[in-house]
Design a protein around this nucleic acid. Structure first.
Length: 268
DNA sequence: CCGTTTGTTCTGCC
DNA sequence: GGGCAGAACAAACG
């Protein structure tokens, strides 16, 4: 279940292998893998184009071509990796044949999608602020959270609000800032929101250093795992003790997701 | 067959 | 009609 740090990790590892490669062809083994373009148009548009860069926006891996962009969303179980041949495995949703290498999109659950955009802005405006970008300031977060009246967990998971946080890092950030996941955004104190701003940045930056949190079955290149899992303070620790106050960690449902929090540190 | 997992889209309420 | 919560959905697996 890749979130921002995992996607960033994939992007950084793909970059050196993909930059400068030309797209020779594309094949899909799963008709729904292309989300907003049909295969014929896609083939015609991308063939012979060079990959100029590989970047990240929200939780999308973006192939920047000479003309246009291919955002790829891994969703739950998607994996994107370069290989010298097409693997003889199940669940290969799509394959890009490049000049020197194949780019494989393997996706067991088939929720992952490939998109096409001519214009960067058409894609960009669909997503919220980048939490590691310079527009994401303490003032912005304070104002934006106080101007809404929503459960904190649901708000932070909303990709139109902040792009890139998912279930793991939201729980970690809320624990770090000592905010109850069900507290209502306009009632959370300014002190806590300022703390949240610092927490979000610090947690994401640290998770990127550790190559993300491999959880269940996400991994990049050759299954090398991210190791932030060992740094988790609250997520997936139901029944264990809070590292700050030794209270037993509880699991509840918030915004329809399994949510871990400390009943003592994170008061409503 | 059911529960579980995710982000997005929908539906319906206020 | 905006803001919001919650259901539905996309598939596969055990």
């Amino acid at each position: 279940m890749p979130e921002l740090p995992e996607v960033e990790t994939v992007v950084r590892h793909l970059k050196p292998d993909l930059i400068g490669q030309k797209i020779i062809s594309f094949q899909s083994n799963w008709s729904k893998v292309l989300d907003n373009i049909n295969i014929d148009q896609f083939l015609e548009t991308i063939s012979d184009q060079k990959i100029l860069d590989v970047t990240r926006r929200a939780k999308f891996i973006v192939l920047n071509l000479e003309k246009g962009f291919i955002p790829i969303h891994l969703r739950m179980t998607g994996r994107l990796f370069p290989n010298d041949r097409i693997p003889d495995e199940k669940h290969i949703s799509a394959v890009f044949q490049l000049s020197d290498i194949f780019l494989i999109f393997k996706d067991t659950r088939k929720f992952g999608r490939i998109y096409w955009y001519d214009e960067w802005s058409d894609f960009d405006i669909k997503h919220g602020i980048e939490p590691l970008g310079e527009l994401f300031t303490q003032e912005w977060l304070l104002m934006s959270i106080h101007s809404k009246k929503r459960q904190m967990k649901a708000l932070l998971l909303d990709q139109h609000f902040i792009a890139g946080l998912g279930n793991i890092y939201v729980d970690e950030a809320l624990w770090s800032a000592r905010i109850h996941p069900l507290s209502i955004s306009n009632e959370v104190s300014s002190v806590k929101i300022k703390r949240l701003h610092r927490s979000i940045r610090a947690i994401l930056e640290s998770a990127i250093v550790y190559n993300g949190t491999t959880f269940i079955n996400f991994s990049f290149k050759d299954g090398i795992p991210g190791s932030y899992r060992n740094q988790l303070q609250i997520f997936d620790r139901e029944g264990l003790l809070c590292k700050r106050c030794n209270t037993t960690i509880k699991k509840i449902r918030a915004a329809g997701r399994g949510t871990y929090y400390c009943t003592r540190c994170q008061k409503r």
